[in-house]
């Protein structure tokens, strides 16, 4: 009896281990899954941005380089919104209050979404913080950036321009 129970426990443990093993990361070329998350006020979704190029960003208050990527995202949006760019930034802080403090410091003029459980980060297989994905108008992942370095600004902007088809 006890033995059987132990086996069951072991089996359950194994199952949990399999289920919790890292999800496969989404690569360039893959279709971005739809995301629905609480925003600053209402629910926000990726689906609603269809037909536009989306700069999708995963960030957290404790992430150092995120302080540098925010101004960059503001700047990109300002420059290319009329060409069809959207910025969709998903916060993965466990505590919303930490995210709010960060936002009071570092202004964001783009769409914000809050995923305290990190489920969307898992879905995308985020490998470092921040991570950003450039999604084409058809919702396909065109480029993936891990981390954010000041020297990457130009090449990211060039990729955005290409995705927008701006000439």
């Amino acid at each position: 009896m006890k033995m059987a129970r132990m086996f069951k426990l072991f089996g359950a443990g194994l199952l949990v281990a399999v289920l919790s093993s890292p999800a496969l990361a989404l690569d360039a070329g893959a279709r971005a899954p739809d995301i629905r998350l609480p925003g600053l006020k209402d629910l926000v979704s990726l689906e609603s941005l269809k037909g536009r190029v989306v700069y999708l960003d995963f960030w957290a208050s404790w992430c150092g380089p995120c302080r540098h990527s925010f101004p960059f995202m503001n700047q990109m949006l300002e420059k290319y919104r009329s060409n069809g760019l959207e910025v969709f930034a998903i916060n993965v802080d466990e505590k919303r209050s930490d995210a709010d403090r960060f936002l009071q410091e570092v202004p964001a003029r783009f769409t914000l979404a809050f995923d305290s459980k990190g489920e969307t980060a898992k879905l995308f297989g985020v490998k470092s913080m921040p991570s950003s994905y450039i999604l084409g108008r058809d919702g396909q992942i065109i480029e993936i950036h891990r981390g954010f370095r000041d020297e990457d600004r130009q090449s990211i902007e060039a990729q955005i321009v290409r995705a927008l088809g701006v000439h």
């Binding site: 919790s20 990190g118 898992k122």
Partner: peptide, 13 residues
Amino acid sequence: NPPKPWEKGNLSK
């Protein structure tokens, strides 16, 4: 149960 990249808030304190 090592943390995922987005779960490192506490460890980065």
